[in-house]
Simulated scan of single mutants.
Amino acid sequence: MPHIDCKPRTDWNAFADAALSGRPLTVEEGLDVLRAPDEELLPLLHAAWRVRSRYFGNKVMLNMIMNAKSGLCPEDCGYCSQSIVSRADIPRYSLLDKESLLAGAREALARKAGTFCIVASGRGPTDRELREVAEAVREIRRTMPLKICACLGLLREGQAELLAEAGVHRYNHNLNTSRERYGRIATTHTFEQRVETVERVKAAGISPCSGVIIGMGESDEEIVDMALTLRALDADSIPVNFLNAIPGTPLEGAGRVSARKALKVLALFRFICPDKEIRVAGGREITLRSLQPLALYAANSLFVGDYLTTPGQEVSRDHQMIEDLGFEIVQYVPGSADSEQRKSPAGA
């Protein structure tokens, strides 16, 4: 006789009900999501979709990254091809000029992105770099309907305020991994310093963007902890990256997360941070592969085009995927209710 498993299935809709009522999942419930049997993946994603659709309907937000300064970084982050410990063969150049940044913004519009992300390698921006980025941001804000995100590293006192004055909507500074694991991923700065930069950004009235990289040896418990930490930090936008183990980096031999596990991670973040922009980010193409469309039943945001030093999927394929799902790309409308900057340090 065939074996019949009498164990009752988990009621994933109860997890959606909890998220919609404002109750965060417990650690045990979070582990249930990450360890869900593969045959329950579709019911799990349907429950995540209930939450996603309540807050975002069928809308998809697109973001485009520009690597405004490449390599030359003194930090030792083990996942990064631009770090001082990396042997990866990548371009290395100082901060691009204003015209190059404006050209990047125009390309973001052509790709139907609502947010243009200016990213610079390094521990943190010099005063000169900050002024040059601010000047470009003012010109983009004056001439193009784009939301601007900056990602320039650790910020010192007063720097977030300068970016806010220039019109930066959002600042990205990822936590990347758990507090417990951080010292095994980077030693030249701390987890606490990353949190401090996110708090500086919030205090300046800029919308905080902070996310994670999955696949660096973390346990399921650590993944749940990351999601709960970002909920407590009140990050408005949460990029969920999946490690692209670039040759020449200390993590080049790391194993890849399965596509099914990646989808469970996205569902977890949707349940724990129900009303936040959850972005399926770096590594999605090589991790999710043919299952990429399913990610958008939990996530509501994508990066389009290339990443910092690795290629992304052809933009037309992303547009086609969104259309085939019956979803709609969100275009940024200046002055709309879709948050210019945070209205107060508390985000009210």
Score class of each variant (00 low, 15 high):
M1E: 09
H3S: 09
D5R: 00
P8L: 04
R9N: 12
N13Y: 06
F15Q: 00
F15C: 04
D17S: 11
P24V: 05
L25A: 06
E29K: 00
G30T: 07
G30S: 11
A36R: 01
L45G: 07
H46T: 06
R50F: 07
Y55S: 03
M61A: 04
N63T: 10
N67K: 01
K69F: 07
S70T: 11
C73G: 08
E75W: 04
D76E: 12
C77F: 00
D89I: 13
Y93V: 12
S94D: 15
L95P: 11
L95S: 13
E107W: 09
A110L: 12
T115F: 07
T115V: 14
V119Y: 03
E129H: 02
E129F: 04
R138N: 01
I140K: 02
R142I: 00
R142T: 02
M144P: 07
K147L: 13
I148M: 11
C149H: 04
C149F: 09
E157L: 05
L162A: 13
L162S: 10
A164Y: 01
N172A: 12
T177K: 08
R184S: 14
I185R: 00
E196P: 00
V201Y: 01
C209Q: 05
S210L: 04
M216F: 05
M216K: 02
E218H: 04
V224D: 06
R231K: 09
L233C: 04
L233R: 00
A235L: 10
S237A: 11
I238S: 08
I238C: 08
N241V: 10
P250R: 01
L251D: 06
E252V: 07
G255P: 07
K261E: 15
A262W: 05
K264V: 13
K264H: 10
V265K: 02
F269V: 10
I272Q: 07
C273G: 03
D275E: 15
K276E: 06
K276W: 04
I278H: 02
A281D: 14
E285A: 08
L288F: 04
R289Q: 15
S290M: 08
A299M: 08
N300S: 08
Y307N: 09
Q313W: 01
I322G: 03
I322V: 15
L325M: 14
L325N: 07
L325I: 06
I329A: 06
Q331I: 11
P334K: 15
S336E: 14
Q341M: 14
A346S: 15
G347E: 15
